[in-house]
Each structure stands twice: as structure tokens, then as C-alpha cells.
Design a protein around this nucleic acid. Structure first.
Length: 122
DNA sequence: AACGTGACTTATT
DNA sequence: GAATAAGCCACGT
């Protein structure tokens, strides 16, 4: 059995872009619990596009001003790769610290302790 | 339509 | 563990 499942959901005449994709990302990010973090890959997987963590980051970038807790999204190493997109390079780290998230000596989030895996939406 | 870019990830050296 | 390469999807030019 093969899973070429590439469902594009053409139901809605999304002529410009797959709004569906953005919607999924937003939903997942919005559900990250207080004091927890997740990764781009995990979000991508929850949205059904496991192989496109990059696109997730790009999608979130457009949502920084959308009230999303995007500071809780880090890369697989727990590094705050997108901190420079918050305006202040320290804002992301500060927000996480205020939520109780701890960092190691290298400035990375202690993933084994604060990683939260989103539930699959697809 | 083609090419380059990117808040990523995995495998290889 | 650092540096490279390749794969990945969507967007802008």
C-alpha cells in the first residue's frame, strides 16, 4: 500500500495560496501550552507536511504580529533561531524565561524537559 | 515557468 | 560536535 496522499484540498477555490496550510499552522501554534515549546518539524507533522519544516517557519513569520505564541517554537536543537524576527533579539528568550522555560549553557531550551508534541490535525 | 530564498531536518564526512 | 550536502514546500521576482 502506498500513500501518495498529497491531498491539496481544492474544495475551496484557493487560487492564491493554500490558506489551509497557514490555518493549520496557526491552530497548532495557538495550542502550545504555557511554559512549553515545540519544533517546526513537529508542527509540520501535525499539519500533515512532515517534510516541510521550513515552510512552517515561514508561515509563522507572517503570524508574529497575529497574537500567536511563536516564541514557543524553536528548532530541533532547542535554539531560538527566529529570535531576530521579534524586533529584539532578547525578546524571545525573555518571554520563555518568564514562562519558566530553562536554557542550558549554550543558550538552548532544555528540550527533554519542555518539549511539547502537538496533536495531529490531519 | 525558472531560479533563488528561507524561523528546518536528516544524513554524511 | 562542526561543516556540507541534499531534500523539502511555498513564495517573490
Amino acid at each position: 500500500m502506498k500513500v501518495e496522499l498529497k491531498v491539496k484540498n481544492k474544495k475551496s477555490k484557493s487560487k492564491k495560496t493554500d490558506q489551509n496550510f497557514f490555518d493549520n499552522v496557526y491552530s497548532v501554534v495557538a495550542e502550545i501550552p504555557f511554559g512549553k515549546v515545540t519544533t517546526y518539524g513537529a508542527i509540520a507533522e501535525a499539519c500533515g507536511i512532515k517534510s516541510s519544516a521550513r515552510t512552517v517557519g515561514w508561515a509563522i513569520n507572517g503570524a508574529t504580529a497575529d497574537g500567536l505564541p511563536c516564541h514557543r517554537v524553536v528548532n530541533r536543537n532547542g535554539e531560538l533561531t527566529g529570535k531576530m524576527y521579534f524586533g529584539d533579539p532578547f525578546l524571545m528568550e525573555n518571554l520563555l524565561r518568564e514562562e519558566g522555560v530553562e536554557f542550558d549553557e549554550k543558550g538552548r531550551v532544555i528540550m527533554k524537559k519542555y518539549f511539547w508534541k502537538p496533536e495531529k490535525k490531519v
